[in-house]
């Protein structure tokens, strides 16, 4: 649509033509009071003094308005072929400038990769390289490809389409909202339709992951650690636009981590997981070993390790059961731990 024509639409016309702009006007209702006239006329109605008072720069305000419209159209028009189906990390070098010795690591939708290595070894840098779509221009000299091709630099600067979503142990909810309001708010920021179904879907999935169920009207700040984590994971899987999810260590307590990973894979995410928990690390298809700022090795999870995973899970279940019994107020009984 021609810029001039667009700016001449009344706000009512704009909203009826572009329903997603309704949100913009309700957030800027103090600036645009009259919906029967255009944005430009709304601003033209202000006196010099009012413009000064509300800190409105006429030219800037209109250009920001138009920019928002343009970007949102692009954001909503993401085409199928632009979807991220795979991510490739081409080798660079470590802190001592020694080349990383692997050919290329390609991770596809639905795959899980574990990242292991001591604190400060370069895990954050690897993540930052992915987020910034490194192009031999970061301290590691790595290069990132998307769908095996040189990606558009738009990923670097677009605030609406971030490549990587992050989940970590330190994250908390800070908003004073119920679960329902929270999910609705997130959906509104993404201009998504069919919000009611999404709210129910996220709640169901979150409750499947959490040890204890919670309700739609539970305030998010009163959720337990496990419930919070469960809601964050379900919400990220279903509602986050980022195709890649980075998980930084999910604690054992109160959440079914295996189901959590399954959910992320089902939603076609590419999952990278920094962890030293053997159960999580062995659930991954591969693991990247980081040392001295570089990728030191890439190990495919062996058959032997996969067999071991089931034993580790039995030990884990034994502990979880005891935790559950304690929570129920029971007295723990001595039971043999049988590992098959």
């Amino acid at each position: 649509m021609n810029k001039q024509v667009f700016l001449e639409l009344t706000i009512e016309e704009t909203i009826s033509k572009y329903p997603f702009m309704a949100n913009y006007f309700s957030d800027h209702e103090s600036t645009y009071k009259k919906h029967t006239i255009s944005v430009v006329d709304n601003i033209a109605n202000y006196s010099e003094e009012e413009l000064e008072d509300f800190a409105i720069d006429v030219e800037l305000t209109i250009s920001l308005y138009y920019e928002y419209f343009k970007q949102t159209c692009e954001f909503l028009g993401i085409k199928e072929e632009e979807k991220v189906k795979s991510l490739s990390i081409l080798p660079g070098h470590n802190k001592s400038l020694e080349s990383e010795e692997y050919d290329e690591l390609t991770i596809s939708q639905g795959e899980i990769i574990a990242i292991v290595g001591p604190t400060g070894s370069g895990k954050s840098r690897l993540l930052a390289d992915i987020e910034w779509i490194a192009d031999n221009d970061t301290p590691t000299g790595r290069k990132i490809l998307i769908n095996k091709e040189q990606p558009d630099k738009k990923w670097r600067f677009s605030s609406g389409n971030k490549l990587v979503a992050q989940l970590s142990q330190n994250m908390n909810f800070v908003m004073d909202l119920t679960v329902k309001e929270f999910i609705e708010l997130h959906a509104a920021s993404r201009l998504i339709e069919g919000v009611d179904e999404i709210v129910i879907k996220i709640l169901d999935e979150a409750n499947r992951l959490a040890g204890e169920a919670f309700e739609l009207d539970t305030p998010i700040t009163s959720l337990s650690g496990g419930q919070s984590r469960a809601l964050m994971i379900a919400d990220t899987a279903i509602l986050s636009q980022s195709p890649i999810v980075l998980i930084d260590e999910i604690e054992n307590a109160g959440i079914d981590r295996k189901q959590a990973l399954k959910l992320l894979i089902k939603e076609e995410k590419i999952v990278l997981m920094a962890t030293h928990d053997p159960i999580l690390a062995l659930m991954a298809d591969k693991r990247i070993i980081i040392r001295n700022g570089g990728i030191d090795n890439i190990i495919n999870t062996t058959e032997n390790e996969k067999a071991m995973l089931s034993k580790l899970e039995q030990v884990d279940k034994y502990l979880m059961d005891k935790r559950h019994q304690l929570r129920q107020g029971k007295i723990l009984q001595m039971e043999e731990l049988h590992v098959h």
């Binding site: 971030k162 908390n172 964050m232 919400d235």
Partner: peptide, 26 residues
């Protein structure tokens, strides 16, 4: 961003974008 949830980060970034869509947001 390391201490709030992914959803809150996304909502916050979208609010920033509403106010200043021209800026590079990092």
């Amino acid at each position: 961003g390391d201490i709030v949830s992914q959803a809150e980060r996304e909502v916050f970034a979208s609010r920033v974008r509403q106010v200043n869509p021209k800026a590079i947001t990092m």
